[in-house]
Nucleic acid binder design. Sequence first.
DNA 1: AGCACGCCGACT
DNA 2: GTCGGCGTGCTC
Length: 710
Amino acid sequence: MSELPATPALAAALLRLRVAVDAPQHSGIAAPLDYLSERPLAPGTLLQVPLGKRELLAIVWDPAQEGDQGQVLPAEQLRQVGPALDALPPLNEAWRRLLEFAAGYYQRSIGELALSVLPPQLRELDGKQLQGRLKKLAKLRTEADASAIEASAVPELSVAQAEALQRIDTLMQTDAAPPPLLLYGVTGSGKTEVYLRAAEHALAQGRQVLVLVPEINLTPQLEARFAERFAGRHIVSLHSGLTPAQRLRHWLAAHLGEADLVLGTRLAVFASMPRLGLIAVDEEHDPSYKQQDGARYSARDLAVYRARLERVPVILGSATPSLESWQHANAGRYQRLALPARIGGGAMPRVRLFDMNSLPRNKGVTTAISAPLLHALRQRVERGEQSLVFLNRRGYAPVLHCGECNWKSDCPNCSAWRVFHKEDRTLRCHHCGVAERVPRACPSCGNLDIAPLGRGTERLEEQLAEMLQGVLRPDGGPARVARIDADSTKLKGSLESQLGAVHAGEVDVLVGTQMVTKGHDFRRITLVAAVNPDAALFSSDFRAPERLFSLLMQAAGRAGRDAAQAAQSEMWVQTWHPQHALYQALLAHDFERFAASQLAERESAGLPPFAHLALLRAEARTPEVAEAFLKAAAEAAAGLSTAAQLLVYPPVPMSMARVANVERMQMLLESASRPALQALLRAWLPELQQLKREHRGLLRWAIDVDPLAI
DNA sequence: AGCACGCCGACT
DNA sequence: GTCGGCGTGCTC
């Protein structure tokens, strides 16, 4: 099957097919390849093809168009396709257009992207095995129908919710592509209810609904909420935490049109859904929607593109929208729907800024918890209420330090400190993973007196337990402090069990990283404290303030969701810069003011959303090699046609310049015109492939379109 | 990416 | 003599 056709006459008798194969970008195979087939195969059909010495899973792509460039090989030089998986319906036109756009926009080959978003297990199945899976799936389906349960009661809508829904309904009726909807409402204002109702309407019209969430952690609870409302409907999840068999099963259910609702993380934006009728992107501002390796796509942006392509409504929901989406709404390209109040009359917690400058400075060591905050924590424990202390840094201390010779626990492989983890007495690098037992004495001078510098959640938990010793709950028991972060939840199911303990009231003071600020609904928390958030104010990352504001708003949203307690709930922020505009806006819960000031800064600095960015990154054993490659790349770019509309900055080391002994440099490209930037990247890519060959010692290069950080 | 081919050092 | 080191280059 995979041999070359024996004669030119035979070759001429076969059909020519374009096939997208899974070849990585640096292979130089960007476009689909030509093969021969004895019978016609519809575009979107999965099949095996020979490539070199291998047999790969690939996808029949659309025939070449008139204007397509690239040389056409004579039929005698083409190989024949292998067996097709034609038990599976072909991936439809809309899906192919989505992939074609995404591959082009993020500068990857179609096949590479397409195969990376299909369930990995498809690669291992032949036609017969696939038929078996499909049969099993059909059987499961009939069993599920028999066990339908009663749907839960539907709550009444607030005026704002009803109005939002009315607008969505109108958009669902129209035939043209509706504008994206920006659903803007604080935590607890009932955004999820709007998704549920909009989904209900789409389902009633016989359509499928796609709901995206930023993190795997958030899928189970959202799934539970949808399952409760839509009993009897077929709901599946799609994320990388599924077993290969589950992922295939769920994907097939979506692709065959059997699943009514698909809930998932960013990769679910590529789910094949033949009856798609609505897309919702929850917490649309969340950075997790941007893929950080391989094809660096933004699932939120692709959701918007997909909705336009399929002429279905897309709802972007957030209490703190991304400045990109906010600006689109300002310009009238997105329709803004505001949910101004919390459901049930609950108020947002009162924000209090605690000025750290007012503390006596002569102690030399600053305390993590100021006396007034400690007092507030004490009071909550004594009243039987819960508190959340938020510190976005895990481990015991970020660095270990020798007071004698000034040694610090740097990582031998990275330009970063190794973090002191007291629990297992290790020094661990959070970037390359290298771990080592904590030395007894300074490795440099032998001094025994080495001390942790700064603090992470582990140390904060320890200090809080100490500070709250002797404080009693109303039932006479001692105060209980617990911690939730990436270290405490490494084991499967441990996040759920720890959250369960908090919900059950078995914890009085919860210490956590941003992990606990996302989505989890803690009914009894009346105090949220951010202990040391200032670092982001002075970060070189232009999006750091936006992220901090959203994180603090989200953390504040953890408090007072129970209306009975809302009146007395508070958010404390300990800061050295209480006058900073970010904190002043937070004080007033005023996202709009914050967004306006940030947008003004971005505009004057020529940053997104007023300019479009792309990064070229290079990795090598030495910074010189990486830099030389980038400089050559800049020269090549200058010679290309759209270069005039483009600004190419000099190469600089990445903020984490060395990871695992690899030196990393990057170069920023900026343009006011997205098409000009896109055109340049397209023309640049072949030149970069050539340059890679000329620059010995260059390990890898990559393009990041619309990077999150520069 | 795989998987060839290719051209130089220490082993049965 | 040849086993294998990983540099270089190709895959319709």
